[in-house]
């Protein structure tokens, strides 16, 4: 999943930080180091899950995302470690369940 082959056929993946509000995307790769990844995984943010930004908090604070029907706030720097594809596009590539 972490290989480079996808860059040949597709434009470079966006990160979750670039996704506009209300656009549903699928996480394809997580570039979070070491143990830091567990808090995300435990809350259901794993490769293949659907995520949708629903609200920016004031003054550039964390953004609120909907993941599996509940709300999780992430800082921009964390969101930018999550590579995503739009949900429609990913449906053909990944089993998004």
């Amino acid at each position: 999943m972490g290989s480079r082959r996808d860059s040949a056929s597709k434009p470079a993946d966006r990160t979750l930080a670039d996704v506009p509000l209300e656009e549903e995307v699928v996480v394809v790769r997580m570039e979070v180091a070491g143990e830091d990844i567990e808090p995300l995984l435990e809350r259901g943010i794993v490769p293949g899950c659907k995520v949708c930004p629903v609200r920016h908090s004031p003054a550039g604070g964390p953004t609120v995302y909907r993941v599996d029907g509940h709300l999780i706030a992430l800082r921009r720097e964390t969101a930018s470690c999550l590579c995503v594809r739009s949900a429609l596009e990913a449906a053909g590539v990944l089993d998004a369940n």
Binding site: V32, A33, P39, H70, I72
Partner: peptide, 12 residues
Amino acid sequence: GRPHPFVMELPP
């Protein structure tokens, strides 16, 4: 140290 990610759940 490197800052750890801030993951905050917002319960209903």
